[in-house]
Design a protein around this nucleic acid. Structure first.
Lengths: 339, 339
DNA sequence: ATGAAAGCGCTAACAG
DNA sequence: CTGTTAGCGCTTTCAT
C-alpha cells in the first residue's frame, strides 16, 4: 500500500510551503531560482503526480467533456468521435464516451445526468426527440452544449449540421445526369429531421430536372440493415420499375445491397446504387460503391472546436452559431449510364 | 449566471445541517422521517445535483475508468469497448475512451499519464511493447489494471486473453478437413505476440495432420489493408500454389479480398478464404465470409467485470487471474471442398 | 520571495 | 436523531 504523494509531501521534502511548491509546479507567481530547482527535484524524486480532481474542485472545471453517440460500431459515429477526441486531446481535455444504443432517450438522459453531475465542462450529442425537454432543463444550469446534425427548439446552443439536403440533391442529380428517371430511395425514420432533409434533397433534384416524384419509389428502412433489406425487397416485388437506388445510411446500404444480391440483380448493370457514409469496407466491394460522405471526422473536429471555444470564452458572448458542413459525393463504380 | 446549488443550500433551505442533508440524500445513517421529507423536498425544489468531483476528492475514488483502444473504427476494438461500457454503466461507472491510433506508444503513455492524474479507478488496455516500462512504473502507484490479449513481464495484473492459438488451429483444421493441403497465411507484425500465436496455431494444425509447413506460404501484412493487399499479390506472383488463404485480422481481410478480386480469383471456386474478426459487412459479401470471431464484446465484458472486482475488492487479495476466451469459428460460404 | 490560512463541496468521526 | 468539525489536495488572497 504505497501512500500517494501530495503537494504537501513535495513541499516538505523541498523545505518550502505548499504555496511555493504549487507556484513552481504551476509555473506562475514569483519564487527564486534556487527554490524552483529544489521543488522540481523533490517532485521528480518523489514521482509527484498532481491530483486533477482536487484541481478541478478548486478551479470549478474538469477539463473533461462528454460525448454521446448513437452507435459505437457505426462508421459515422466513430469517425465523428475520432475528430472530437483528437482535437480534445490537443487542448488537454479528456472525453467520456457514452453509447445511447441507437438514440434511446432514457439512456441519453441518464448519461446526460451522469455527465452533468461529474461536472464535465461540456457535452456533444445528437439528441433523440424524447430527450429535448430534459436537455432544456439541464442546460439552464449553463452547461455548454454542442449539437450534431440536430436542433432543439428553445435551446440556444451551437450546432454542426450535415448538409443533408445538398448531399442528397447532389447524389440524385448525378443519377439523373446519367440518364436515370426512375430512382428509388430508402429513407430512415419518417419523423427524423435528418431523414426528412435527405428525402427533401431527393425531391428537389427531381423538381429541378422536371422529373416527377413517385411516392411508390420511396420506402423507409428504419435505419437498420434488416429494415432496408425488407424495404428493397418490397420495392422489387411491387413491380414499379426503377433503375437506380439511393440509400441513406450505412447499415441500410448493407441491407439494400444484400437484397439486390439475393434478387440476382447486378450493380451497376441491372441497377445503379448510391449509399450514404463512407466506411472502409465499401471500397473493396466489386464494383466499389459510390456514396455521399458526410465527413464525420470534420464534423467532430468542428464540434469539439466550437465547444472548447465556448467553454473557454469566459465572457458570456452569446454568439451561438449553426455551421453546415458540405458533404462529398465519392464517385466510384456502382452507377451506370443509362443512355 | 445561475449559481450552482450545493448541499449547503439544500440544508439551509430544509433547516438542517449539511450532515443530515448528506445522510438523507445518500440514504445512510439515521434521521427522522420528518427531516427526510423536508430535505428531499428542498433538494427537489432547488434542483440539486450532487457534485461528484467533491465526492471523488473526499472518497478517493472517481467511479470512472479509462480505456485505451488501438483503433476507434475497428470492429474488434469497438465491440470490446461496447462490452466494457455497458458493464461499466451497470455499476455506475463512466468511461474515458482514448485512441492510441494503432498502438502508438507515445500516445499510450500520455493517455496513461493523463488518466492516472485524473485518478481513474482503473484502466483497461492492450499496451504496445514500448509502453511496458512506463506501465510498470505507473502501476507501482497501485492503479488497478486489466490487460487485453497481452501480458507485461514483471507486471502482476489480470489479463483477458484471446485464444489465438486455438482459433487459428480450428480455422486451419477446418480447411484441412475440406481437403486443403496448401494453405497460405497472412500474419500481422512479426514481433507481435498475438500474431505469433495465430501463426503458431496455423503450424500446430499442420503438425497435427502431418502436413508440411511451407515457409513460402507465410507472408506478413503488417495489420493493414494495403499491407495484406501487397502480401496477397506477392503470394500470387510467387507461383507457389495454394488453394486456401487464412488472414488474421479485419483490415488485412479487406486487403486480401481486394487482391484476390483484382487477380480475378473467385471465392470459393478458385480459392477458399477464412478471415479473423466478424464485422457486420462480412455477412453481405457474396459469398459470405467464414471467419474466426474473437468475441470482443465478451472480452470487454469480462475485462470490465474483472477490473471492477479488483477496484471494489478492498482487501488486497492478490488473486490476479489470466482468463482465456475461446474464439468461435463462424462457418459461412467462403470455403470450398477440394476433394 | 515566501507562508498562513481559507475554502472549493462533500462525508464521516465524534459529541451531544 | 442531529450538529460541529475536520479534512480530502489543491490554489489563492493577503500579509509578512
Amino acid at each position: 500500500m504505497k501512500k500517494t504523494i501530495t503537494l504537501k509531501n513535495v513541499a516538505a521534502d523541498a523545505g518550502v510551503s505548499t504555496t511555493i511548491a504549487s507556484r513552481v509546479l504551476g509555473n506562475y507567481g514569483s519564487f527564486s531560482d534556487e527554490t524552483r530547482v529544489k521543488v522540481l527535484q523533490s517532485a521528480e524524486k518523489l514521482n509527484y503526480q498532481p491530483n486533477r480532481i482536487a484541481q478541478a474542485l478548486r478551479a470549478g472545471n474538469t477539463k473533461a467533456i462528454g460525448v454521446i453517440v448513437n452507435s459505437v460500431t457505426d462508421t459515422f459515429w466513430m469517425n465523428l468521435f475520432r475528430g472530437i477526441e483528437s482535437t480534445a486531446q490537443k487542448y488537454g481535455y479528456q472525453v467520456f464516451l457514452c453509447n445511447s444504443d441507437n438514440g434511446q432517450s432514457e439512456k441519453e438522459q441518464s448519461f446526460l445526468q451522469a455527465l452533468n453531475e461529474r461536472n464535465v465542462d461540456g457535452i456533444i450529442l445528437s439528441p433523440a426527440l424524447g430527450t429535448h425537454p430534459f436537455l432544456r432543463k439541464i442546460h439552464r444550469g449553463k452547461l455548454p452544449l454542442v449539437l450534431v446534425d440536430s436542433k432543439v427548439e428553445g435551446l440556444d446552443v451551437s450546432s454542426i449540421i450535415i448538409d443533408n439536403v445538398g448531399g442528397a440533391f447532389e447524389a440524385v442529380e448525378y443519377l439523373i445526369s446519367l440518364g436515370h428517371k426512375d430512382i428509388a430511395v430508402i429513407t430512415g425514420y419518417h419523423d427524423s429531421p435528418t431523414s426528412i432533409a435527405r428525402l427533401d434533397g431527393y425531391k428537389r433534384a427531381h423538381k429541378m430536372y422536371s422529373l416527377p416524384v413517385k411516392e411508390s419509389l420511396i420506402e423507409s428502412g428504419d435505419y437498420t440493415q434488416q429494415g432496408a433489406y425488407d424495404a428493397t425487397l418490397r420495392l422489387l416485388k411491387s413491380g414499379n420499375k426503377f433503375t437506380a437506388l439511393f440509400v441513406s445510411n450505412e447499415s441500410m446500404t448493407r441491407g439494400a445491397l444484400k437484397a439486390l444480391d439475393t434478387a440476382g440483380l447486378k450493380v451497376p448493370d441491372n441497377i445503379s446504387v448510391i449509399g450514404w457514409d463512407n466506411p472502409e469496407w465499401i471500397s473493396i466491394l466489386n464494383p466499389a460503391l459510390t456514396v455521399v460522405d458526410g465527413l464525420p471526422f470534420d464534423i467532430g473536429t468542428m464540434a469539439c472546436q466550437t465547444l472548447l471555444n465556448e467553454i473557454e470564452m469566459k465572457d458570456d458572448n452569446n454568439n451561438k452559431k449553426s455551421i453546415t458542413i458540405k458533404t462529398e459525393l465519392v464517385k466510384r463504380f456502382s452507377c451506370g449510364n443509362i443512355n
